[in-house]
């Protein structure tokens, strides 16, 4: 049972990180490879702030969320939006957006590496995690927060996208941006709003993951972004519920490999499993097969 609990915690960490990326990719169609750098830099700014002023947990989270949202909006304003405006069509913009995301990511990474010399950095907070032992299972308050927030935000976002008017508008953009714009959906406003939410989620993940792990390094975001990418593809692009399931499937596979003490095979087995699933369901676990009229 402890291993199940560990897998749930790890899955929730992946989920918090992947949610923002999945939201942006699945709705406004932007595969944002600066998401990892946003996550890291939000935590890094939190580190700089808390090195001077000790903050409570909510204060640390607020700083990281605001910084994450700001970076994400700036990325949209200065990089993605100009590319979308100049591109002849959406397909032409895709590759440029990918490269722009990687380029944008290099800037905060270089700043953090230079400032920290790539040594780990943490967050100073008056919050002190407690360890609970229930029926022989050990869990920290930080892990509980991560699990609860991951599930609440993941499920909440799924329902919001399915049932609210704004959610419907966002999903419409993901299906056909031109047609939905013609029906009154303001793509630019929604894009900025979506990027702000995604950046805020990256910041939230940055703060909570740093508190959970004790410290992260400037390169931590790069490692997570590969896993997030796999989770989104596994779950099915455009399906937030799929992202939730994908995160826990990946974490479960990794934990299983660890329990078997095949630690160096974690990535090979986990990604191999994803590959097998995608062979059977190319659209992902909850992705829908699209029908295109000819």
């Amino acid at each position: 049972m402890q291993d199940v609990l560990n897998a749930t915690t790890l899955g929730s960490i992946y989920l918090l990180f992947a949610l923002g990326m999945a939201l942006v990719w699945g709705t406004i169609g932007i595969l944002n490879f600066a998401h990892g750098a946003t996550f890291m830099f939000a935590a890094f700014i939190g580190h700089l702030v808390t090195a001077r002023v000790e903050l409570p947990l909510l204060g640390v989270i607020a700083v990281a969320v605001l910084v994450g949202a700001l970076i994400s909006v700036l990325t949209q304003l200065l990089a993605f939006q100009p590319i979308l405006k100049r591109a002849k069509n959406r397909h032409a913009a895709e590759l440029r957006i990918l490269i722009a995301g990687i380029g944008v990511a290099a800037i905060p990474l270089a700043i953090a590496q230079r400032q920290t010399r790539s040594t780990p950095f943490g967050l100073r907070s008056s919050y002190s995690p407690q360890v609970y032992e229930v029926f022989g299972l050990r869990i920290t308050t930080t892990a509980i927060i991560i699990i609860v927030l991951g599930l609440v935000i993941g499920i909440g976002m799924t329902l919001w996208l399915r049932r609210s008017r704004h959610g419907l508008a966002l999903r419409a953009l993901g299906v056909d941006a031109e047609t939905s714009a013609g029906m009154g959906v303001n793509r630019t406003t929604l894009a900025f709003g979506t990027m702000a939410v995604a950046g805020g989620l990256a910041g939230l993940a940055g703060a909570l993951l740093t508190l959970q792990l004790g410290a992260i390094a400037p390169e931590t975001g790069d490692q997570l972004i590969i896993k997030a990418f796999a989770i989104i593809v596994l779950g099915g692009l455009g399906s937030m519920a799929g992202t939730v399931i994908g995160a826990y499937v990946l974490a479960g596979a990794e934990t299983l490999v660890l329990v078997m003490n095949w630690g160096t095979w974690v990535d090979a087995v986990s990604f191999g499993l994803i590959f097998l699933i995608l062979l059977a369901r190319p659209q992902g676990l909850l992705g829908r097969k699209e029908v295109r009229r000819t």
Binding site: N6, T255, V259, G263
Partner: peptide, 16 residues
Amino acid sequence: LAVQMTTQDFAGQSQQ
């Protein structure tokens, strides 16, 4: 217990 360069969470190994 062997881990990879990309391993970030050690909860499982710590419990073991």
